[in-house]
Design a protein around this nucleic acid. Sequence first.
DNA 1: GCCAATTTTGCAACCGGTTGCAATTTGATG
DNA 2: CATCAAATTGCAACCGGTTGCAAAATTGGC
Lengths: 333, 333
Amino acid sequence: MPITLKDVALRAGVSRSAVSRTFTDGASVSEKMRRRVEKAAVELGYSPNALASSLTTGRTKLIGLVSNNFHNPIFLEVFDRFTRALQDKGLRPLLVNLTDETNPASSVQMLRQYSVDGVIVASSTLPPGFSKAFRDAGMPVVHAFGRPTSAPEVHVVGIDNIESGRMAARTLIARGYRDVGFLGGPKTATSTQDRLLGFLAEIATHPEIRVSHSFADAYSFDAGRKEMLRLLAENPAQAYFGGDDVLSIGALSAIGESYLSVPRDIGIIGLNDMEMAAWQNINLTTIRQPIRHIVSSSIELMTEMLKNPDRPPEARIFACEIVERGTLRPLKA
Amino acid sequence: MPITLKDVALRAGVSRSAVSRTFTDGASVSEKMRRRVEKAAVELGYSPNALASSLTTGRTKLIGLVSNNFHNPIFLEVFDRFTRALQDKGLRPLLVNLTDETNPASSVQMLRQYSVDGVIVASSTLPPGFSKAFRDAGMPVVHAFGRPTSAPEVHVVGIDNIESGRMAARTLIARGYRDVGFLGGPKTATSTQDRLLGFLAEIATHPEIRVSHSFADAYSFDAGRKEMLRLLAENPAQAYFGGDDVLSIGALSAIGESYLSVPRDIGIIGLNDMEMAAWQNINLTTIRQPIRHIVSSSIELMTEMLKNPDRPPEARIFACEIVERGTLRPLKA
DNA sequence: GCCAATTTTGCAACCGGTTGCAATTTGATG
DNA sequence: CATCAAATTGCAACCGGTTGCAAAATTGGC
């Protein structure tokens, strides 16, 4: 049914190689030949079969886009940016939704079967060894939103979560809060661990400040709300660093439901600066994660890897910045 | 580098066909042979190349998942469900992000090049002819969230937007609102057009009720907020049917920013019942679109199409239901 | 207009599988 | 143990392309 190379060759009265060559750039074809072939091709409505060509070229232009964050609204933006950026480079995202599993084996096999040219892992909660499995299977990998280390096993692009924890702490301290807490995401997420680490380390330089921490079950509204309700029932701190924005919004809801006011009674600072944080009826003060740069840098690394698969793994770390909105008491003048 | 069929055949000392057959079910292989081949396969770590086999079988198990809704949070849930459901059926989602374009040509070509087995278009805003283009190119198509008609050109799964417009109208009338408005999504979206149609039709049966309507630029928070601010500056109605939830939430924000109270001063009913509508600090009364069923039914239709591509197009329509929360005044007892 | 250098073209093998067909093996039956 | 049908296996062609190599065509220099 579909038109093949052979059909075009027949129609144009030339060899199959000639047709192939007019459709692969960099190949040697005369102008005359090209025109002749292209004429036949459009007449027949031919377009080359990318999969067949991948057999010999070894390139599919398919990129596995692997994530387990299908519940955090920030990831819609992440997927939007990734898919657009990939498309702009002529690459095609093959989406893998991990649901709960953190065992890469079946994803690795599946992506191998489809001969993807590379894999982008987009998650801040997967264990360190996860993305390594793809590399071990011989695929170029970039782990976006991963944990950067000085000697990464795969390319990692993200933020310095330790530093962002410190930043949150400094911000709270500067506002005069003397009793602060970390309302973290899931304890197993590397991002949570690192944010806590930085937060505590910074607070530790101020012995007069009281600090506490606890974890929500997930980066989600409900988990944040539930944990904040629990904290409110006990003896809450004056201000919290929420594990991320959606968690923080859940916490805000809990506070409102308890007839307390933000920032008057309790302060909250989130992390991500997702679209909703800017919604006027939420207006969350937060630490902006430069998603745009993380994505574009990941894509850049990926295209580099496609050219040179042996490029040694590298960590690219982007700075965050405070976005002042209405959920922390103002700086004292 | 990667292990091929031939390697396994060599190692097991059998023909290539034998290896192929042990990996395609339904093929005739003796137990002895199967064991022998499987042994060699695991020793070498072989897994068959799905793309190569697609060449002869004509099936790739790739499904194009096409959407232009990468800004409406409801679609994260949609993508989550679609990708999971596809994976469960052994199908692989090849994601296509349409950004702004409503011209299917390049997507059609791209998906043809990758020989996808079928295409799922997930969008409520694309023009009627869009998904038809995929079908014309010979691909099985299901348009999820499309406009159902009695004689659809492709399979359509979704809700009856006209009826949901009526439902919104009935709900507002039952609450005693006498001056109501439709705050629609983009004028070009089929979903907006139909919701308006139904809304007006129902109101028309109550001559005493005043009705007005206007459109936001997009199904987005900002568009909804902006339009509601505009309406508030003039002479707002008593209650609005918001084009969808995210739009309605934007409207809620505008109302709050204007120091008005919901539902005391103005009522809002949305449509979708996205996760955020249930957030306690939003608490939006809305019309639930049964996403779960729409997705599973779409997948079901798709798998049917894969078995029998000539299945005549069909429209599957799901009922919506009102979800009572806090943005409409209560029913009079 | 002739010859060498360069470019363009076609041949044929190959990428990693699948499958129709015929040959071989197996197993049941007499 | 011979016979025949059924099950299993291998051969070879094919899926839709690409590419090294040699033959053919073009170009430039004189």
